[in-house]
Amino acid sequence: MHNDDFLFESAKTGNARSFAMLYEKYAKQLYLYAYKFLENREDAEDAVSQASLSVYRNIKNIRNSGSFKAYYFKALSNCCRDIISKNKFTVVGPEETENLTDGGGTESSVIEKSMLDSALSSLSEGEREIVLLAVVSGFTSAEISKITGLTGGSVRSKLSRSLAKLRSLLEKEV
């Protein structure tokens, strides 16, 4: 298989196929992140599409393939916030959340999911962003700090606070 560096360099020359192959590595994480953040499948699709265009257009600004994932999530996080600010007047509640799978999951997984999802949606935007970056994308606090622009300390304390909030909500419901 081609390695990331090769794909990355090739994508830099404008090769859409190579770009898509790089994208594929993170596609599910990106979609899941956007979906959990925006709580709406169509918006999530838009956000990932927009972020992809943005990353593709700006790929020459990314120094090496190692920064690709963080750059992508940075773009996605911006797109999500953009969509949220556009949707400010539309109330989107957890009850409107759609099933994430195309074919629909089992009954219990839907219930399980909506518990976690509704716990997530009780967090503020900023908190949700940090939690999702840690949980879905597996970024460290230092990486999250680069992506969000918050200080390392602020990321750690927000993350800890949000996790505590989530824990209490989930435990209550169980």
């Binding site: 594929e24 979609y31 899941l32 994430l100 195309d102 997984s109």
Partner: peptide, 20 residues
């Protein structure tokens, strides 16, 4: 553990087409 299936619009092929 959550089953995630990527919507057609976000398949690598679609993204390839989109950026192209």
């Amino acid at each position: 553990e959550e089953p995630v299936s990527l919507p057609e619009k976000l398949s690598p092929d679609s993204i390839s087409e989109l950026v192209e």
